[in-house]
Simulated assay, not measured.
Amino acid sequence: MIDRVITSGTFSLDGGTWEVDNNIWLVGDAREVVVIDAAHDAAAIAERVGGRTVRAILCTHAHNDHINAARSLAERTGAPIRLHPADQVLWEQQYGDELTYRALTDGEKVAVGGITLEVLHTPGHAPGAVCVLAPDLGALFSGDTLFKGGPGATGRSYSSFDTIIDSIRGRLLSLPPETVVHTGHGDSTTIGAEAPHLEEWIARGS
């Protein structure tokens, strides 16, 4: 079972602030779910969760628009917040040392509702960016690493275009082409739809 909540708010970094709409993904079954990225509105996410148990709040990275509802959602649900520790510097911009999380590691398996999710460390958009692969569902939750039309933005602090291209090439484009890519913003796509455009992205970014 895959469900989506769309919330609206702002993303702030390097002195700028932008209006954004975020996709929050719920993965599991009728009894339990994980929440992938708790953005902007914990109440809206909790409403969609309903009576199900939240096993974890998985953060694809620590830009504020992906974690700014994590504390409130964790308090509501009792679920642990999980984040790759390479994003500590970004986490501290939102929460300082007031809130802790449990570390996500590359290759870690997370079980929920009879589904196994695998964590793929895909730095570039942020140092600790991860994607969450659900092989049984033929789905990838890409955060801001891969979008319909290309890689995530790399023009701000703690990002790297070369690194995100390496992550996409090495970790994502080898997945089955029919894998559905559920993104952190905007429409979903597939690996097969994006893979042919790798060289175009490189040319645009160079």
Rank of each mutant, 00 (worst) to 15 (best):
T7P: 05
S8G: 06
T10S: 12
F11Q: 04
S12F: 02
T17Y: 04
E19L: 09
E19D: 09
L26H: 02
G28N: 12
E32H: 07
V35T: 03
I36C: 12
D37T: 11
H40L: 04
H40R: 01
D41Y: 02
A42N: 01
A44R: 01
I45T: 00
I45Y: 00
A46Q: 05
V49H: 02
G50N: 09
G50E: 13
H61V: 09
A62M: 06
S72L: 10
L73Q: 03
G78W: 07
G78Y: 12
A79N: 11
P80K: 11
R82F: 02
P85N: 07
D87P: 03
D87K: 03
D87S: 13
E92R: 14
Y95K: 06
L99P: 09
T100R: 15
R102C: 10
T105L: 04
G107E: 02
G114R: 03
T116A: 14
L117V: 14
E118T: 12
L120G: 06
T122K: 07
G128T: 06
C131M: 04
C131F: 02
C131V: 02
C131G: 08
L137W: 03
S142V: 00
L146S: 14
K148S: 10
G150E: 03
G155H: 11
G155M: 05
R156Y: 06
Y158F: 15
S159G: 15
S159T: 14
F161Q: 10
D162N: 13
D162I: 09
D166L: 05
D166P: 01
S167W: 00
R171S: 07
L173Q: 05
P177L: 01
H185Q: 08
H185C: 01
D187K: 06
A193I: 07
A195E: 07
E199T: 14
E199L: 13
E199D: 13
A203L: 11
R204E: 12
R204N: 09
G205S: 14
